[in-house]
Write a protein that binds this DNA or RNA. Structure first.
Length: 702
DNA sequence: CGAATTGAGTTTTTT
DNA sequence: ACTCAATTCG
């Protein structure tokens, strides 16, 4: 085989990364260097050229988005049976393993997955019981989460702590929390990883089976792995294993979630034969953008040296603007977007506005709305986080696992059944005394003499009957069960129209899936919907933009206190992460990059004087259009919408009629009257350049 | 038990 | 400013 068509379109390091099999491999893949292509090609190469079974490759990603893309592209490259491939997120792979094996750890196979909300609910309740200041629940939840991500058990934590005060309290909560999870037969996200590690550590025979099955392990976004994930991969792979880790330490932005960039460097220590391949050619961005972002990221001390370069053209200069306030900033962004759009350079969907914190979206949104620019805000609050969706899902969880106390508490009085706080508290105490689940204890209460009034007993009994009835139907499909839930509980009757629609959408989306499969899917989904099929400008946080690319990118709010964020000012490591965040933002841009800061920003209803971000100092001026003006059109046009309107003419944005092409919108215009040269976009026909007089263009009033 | 009022806390959030 | 949640009243 002289030449391999699979490898034709790869550059040399990419080809090496694909074909290097048999020794541990770390691919340091710079932004836009064709990482996904390498991973998918490698998968296909191993299957088609090296006779790996597609089922013997464990491919792990962090996001569903990445895993979907990988599945999709891999299926396009190999044409064998692609059902049940081991391509998925860390959590979904662990879930898949645990659903089969968790009995080794004393849990039932129908365990429930607690999401962040459930986790917080449970922790708050524990804090209440332990008389710890409840408002700390978020803090404590995240501390516990990071402990688990570091494979630190409560005991271990206690023994290594200072033995005083707060850590001790956290350990106490941690112990209780794990007890409660066990009682409810529930695992949180961190448990999915931690338990799988435990499973493999404590049950070598099980591990052996999986080691045999997985001949190769591929890990994407390796810089984002936490300790538990690192150990998991390490255990499956074994000492001299076949694996390939792909990552970019410059894009590590999830330290606050327990991600440990150090894992990249640790690989070298743990695998002496580790081969390192750098992908440094960027296919995404212009030279100017690469130059600027490279310069900025060099400001970080701790990074593995990597120099991005590109054969792409220089392109437009990067723009930086300093405004007086966020309104000006927003107006300018809006004006620039409109201009680029009307000129026919870009569709709205080619453009994105990125910011550090969601709060910044407000001002930008106002600016875009003012300019009638369509936009979509992508924020973390997903469909599955809506109250009505969570309520319905809580019923489903309860049906599959009646001991799920968090879900029970959620729906016990939803819709209102007259079971109030005092009743719930009493049930709670009773359950604690018998150390059993709420569901079990409610059944006992109903059928015994006690201090509960008969009216409450009736209500409880009606609730339990409903649930038991539904449990009897738990073999039906998820959508059927949901229909039964809303029918039996009259849940929809208390809801506003919009929420009812959401529930109906949920039901329709789950046709033909089993209850367990549906719950797994929704639990492991959550978050960022990035389907950008409508032609609108995308707005999202810098974190949300990771892994995406846009022709035009606006980075707004580049100020001390915003980026870098105020809470990161103290800590050098945090500061480096802020810089990486900036870097991730810049490297999302393919062709044009606009950056801006403001002098005064209103935040939490206080106007604050602000300094431009320190990172701006590292932007090389020769790649850049620099403006510190109050009013400033960045894109150099003749301001046509105002200057050309003296005569009756064809303004940008106005509607015109052509004898054969019909009605279109003027995107560009030069000159007046019959001699005007105009560029018109005719919907369904395309963009046409015309001389107004010759083409018999008529202007239509708006 | 449910509605109204008061109060605290405001980053990022792959799963 | 604004949200979300806990306390307080009817």
């Amino acid at each position: 085989m002289a030449k391999d068509s699979l490898l034709d379109d790869l550059n040399e390091p990419q080809r090496q990364a694909v074909t290097h099999i048999g020794n541990p491999l770390l691919v340091l893949a710079g932004a836009g260097s064709g990482k996904t292509r390498v991973i998918t090609t490698k998968f296909a190469y191993m299957v088609k050229r090296k006779r790996f079974s597609p089922h013997s490759i464990l491919a792990v990603t962090f996001t569903n988005r990445a895993s979907d893309e990988m599945k999709e592209r891999t299926k396009g490259l190999i044409n064998c049976d692609t059902k049940n491939l081991w391509i998925g997120t860390f959590h979904s792979q662990c879930n898949r393993i645990l659903r089969k094996e968790i009995h080794h750890l004393g849990f039932k196979h129908n365990f429930t997955i607690y999401d962040e909300d459930d986790q917080c609910t449970l922790i708050r309740q524990i804090l209440k019981e332990l008389n710890i200041y409840e408002a700390l629940y978020k803090n404590i939840a995240s501390r516990i989460s990071i402990l688990k991500a570091s494979l630190v058990t409560p005991d271990k934590f206690l023994s290594q702590g200072d033995g005083f005060s707060f850590d001790e309290k956290i350990a106490k909560v941690y112990v209780r929390y794990q007890d409660e999870l066990k009682r409810a037969e529930a695992l949180d996200f961190d448990d999915l990883i931690m338990f799988t590690v435990r499973l493999f550590t404590e049950h070598p025979k099980v591990l052996e089976r999986y080691r045999k099955q997985f001949e190769y392990v591929l890990i994407d976004e390796f810089q984002d792995t936490n300790h538990a994930q690192y150990m998991l991969a390490n255990i499956i792979v074994g000492k001299d294993g076949n694996f390939c880790a792909v990552g970019d330490d410059d894009q590590s932005i999830y330290k606050f979630r327990g991600a440990n960039v150090g894992n990249i460097h640790r690989l070298k220590a743990d695998h002496s034969r580790l081969k390192i391949i750098k992908l440094e050619q960027n296919y995404r961005s212009t030279k100017n953008i690469i130059n600027v972002s490279s310069k900025v990221i060099q400001g970080n001390a701790s990074r593995s040296e990597k120099t991005l370069w590109t054969e792409n053209e220089c392109g437009e200069k990067v723009c930086y603007c300093l405004f007086n306030n966020e309104e000006e900033e927003a107006k300018h962004v809006a004006r620039t977007i409109k201009d680029l759009y009307l000129k026919g350079f870009y569709e709205y969907s080619d453009m994105a506005i990125l910011y550090r914190i969601n709060l910044q979206a407000k001002a930008i949104e106002d600016g875009l709305r003012e300019a009638s620019i369509p936009y979509t805000i992508f924020n973390g609050i997903s469909f599955y986080n809506r109250r009505e969706i969570k309520d319905v899902i809580a019923y489903l969880k309860l049906i599959l696992n009646p001991h799920d106390n968090v879900s029970l508490r959620r729906v016990l009085n939803v819709p209102p059944r007259g079971i109030g706080i005092s009743a719930i508290n009493k049930i709670e105490q009773e359950a604690k005394r018998n150390s059993t689940s709420l569901y079990t204890v409610i059944k006992q209460i109903i059928s015994s003499n006690n201090s509960f009034t008969s009216s409450i007993k009736d209500k409880l009994s009606s609730f339990v009957n409903t649930i038991d009835d539904l449990i009897g139907n738990s073999q039906k499909t998820a959508s059927d069960i949901m229909r039964a839930v809303v029918n039996k509980t009259n849940y929809l009757e208390t809801l506003e129209d919009e929420r009812v629609q959401n529930v109906i959408e949920l039901i329709n989306s789950s046709e033909g899936i089993s209850l367990q499969a549906f719950l797994d899917k929704t639990a492991l989904m959550s978050g960022f919907e990035t389907s950008n099929n409508c032609n609108s400008v995308s707005m999202m946080t810098l974190h949300g933009a990771k892994g995406l690319e846009f022709s035009v990118v606006f980075l707004v709010g580049l100020e001390e206190g915003i980026l870098p964020y105020c809470k990161a000012l103290e800590d050098a490591a945090d500061m480096e992460e802020e810089r990486r965040l900036f870097y991730v933002g810049m490297t999302r841009a393919k062709e044009r990059l606009y950056m801006s800061s403001v002098r005064r920003r209103k935040l939490y209803s206080k106007v604050q004087e602000r300094q431009p971000s320190r990172f701006i100092n590292d932007v090389p001026k020769d790649c850049c259009n620099w403006m510190e003006k109050t009013v400033s059109p960045t894109v150099q046009t003749e301001k046509p919408s105002t200057s050309n309107t003296v005569n009756i003419s064809f303004d940008i944005g106005c509607r015109v009629k052509h004898p054969s092409w019909g009605v279109g919108i003027v995107r560009e215009c030069c000159g007046n009257g019959d001699t005007a040269k105009v560029v018109v976009n005719f919907p369904g026909i395309g963009i046409k350049k015309l001389i107004a007089g010759l083409a018999n263009l008529e202007r239509i009033s708006v």
